[in-house]
């Protein structure tokens, strides 16, 4: 392995020589791409990083208690993928493997930091979706109130999801925010599909009940 070549391929805006196939075309599955990483194809790894950096950061953001930790954990997932390339076997879907690594890291992190106060972040400069305005400098009483209500609601949603039992929380995050189907979630959590369904149903029932006051 030539580190120089790999770093070149890993540049901020790499001119990747690896051309991933569009879904449905005759091309490569992620598992096949991973086999190319195993064979020493640096651009193949870059392709996987580009494809999964955003989903992994958002997954970790919802699992971890702050943004910095989320990025750190997402990087750790990629490092572990890279580290274990030699032993990788395409026996399961790549995403199952990826999310299993991510899940283990996230759960361990949550257990290690469960006594820490969660970071309270509600983006101040995020444009309001309805008005398109930014709420960082509330210029009127109603805007300020609107912001506070929104903030409180967001914190409540987050707190209710976080308060779910661990597996329910994982299932909801994968289902609701990572758009994974029952089969994928079941594979990651090593559960049956029906067990996953009932896990999710219980979680959504709880959320429906507990978020009633905010709708």
């Amino acid at each position: 392995m030539d580190p120089g070549a790999l770093m070149a391929a890993m540049g901020p805006h790499p001119a990747s020589s690896f051309q991933p196939a569009v879904a449905g075309e005759e091309g490569y599955t992620d598992a096949e791409v991973m086999l190319r990483v195993k064979a020493g194809d640096e651009s193949a790894f870059d392709y996987l990083v580009q494809k999964y950096r955003r989903p992994l950061v958002s997954f970790m953001y919802r699992m971890a208690r702050n943004t910095a930790a989320a990025e750190d954990l997402a990087q750790e997932v990629f490092l572990r993928v890279y580290r274990s390339r030699q032993t990788y076997e395409a026996s399961a879907k790549f995403t199952t493997w990826l999310y299993r690594i991510a899940t283990n890291l996230a759960v361990n992190h949550a257990r290690d930091t469960r006594h820490e106060r969660p970071e309270v972040t509600v983006s101040l400069d995020e444009p309001d979706e309805e008005t398109g305005t930014t709420l960082d400098v509330p210029d009127s009483k109603s805007t300020a109130e609107e912001f506070l209500v929104r903030r409180e609601r967001m914190l409540a949603i987050r707190a209710k999801v976080e308060a779910l039992p661990e597996r329910q929380k994982l299932a909801v995050i994968m289902h609701k925010y990572q758009q994974m189907d029952y089969k994928q979630i079941a594979d990651v959590l090593k559960l049956s599909e029906s067990a996953t369904k009932s896990l999710l149903f219980r979680a959504y029932e709880t959320l429906r009940e507990q978020l009633k006051e905010f709708v």
Partner: peptide, 16 residues
């Protein structure tokens, strides 16, 4: 309503 942030500009640099 619970949005996740985009990876920060430091994410890729740090990962590299």
């Amino acid at each position: 309503e619970w949005k996740a942030p985009e990876p920060s500009p430091y994410f890729d640099v740090r990962l590299q």
